[in-house]
Amino acid sequence: MKNIILSVLICSNLLFAFDINDLKKLKEDGDCPMCDLSYADLKGLDLSMSNLNDANLTHVNFTNTIAHKANFSNSDLSHALFVNSNIKGATFVNAILRDVNFTEARIWKGNFSHAIIDNCNFSESALGSAIFDDNNLTNSTFGGAILYKTIFKENVIGIPK
């Protein structure tokens, strides 16, 4: 009996890694700082101007999401998907970006200052006027990305050509 209960608990935890109340709060208020939304499916939502500061956003699916000027600062976005999302002016200051997929995302004027960027995919994304400051980009890919007037500060390692 104990084993069954334990299995159910483990399975439910795997299915809903995020906090249901946090997801509800995000959908109702549009903001959810310091929330746990890990593994949430936020595909196609409008999160423009949302405050997601200091949140657990690991494995979140933001595919096709519109999040103009959203605040992802200090959040952990490891393994998140931003494929084809529209995140113009979004802020990722001090965020953890490990294995994040930004393929075909529109990130004009995005701010990546002091973010940990590790093995991210920026292929075919639009990074015009985005700011990179104090980042290591050596193992991230930028194939086909728009880098028009993108700002790479002197302390950035591995600036794409």
Binding site: R106, W108, K109
Partner: peptide, 10 residues
Amino acid sequence: CPECNYMKEV
């Protein structure tokens, strides 16, 4: 708007 300027200039 940087996106607009990119369209015009590039």
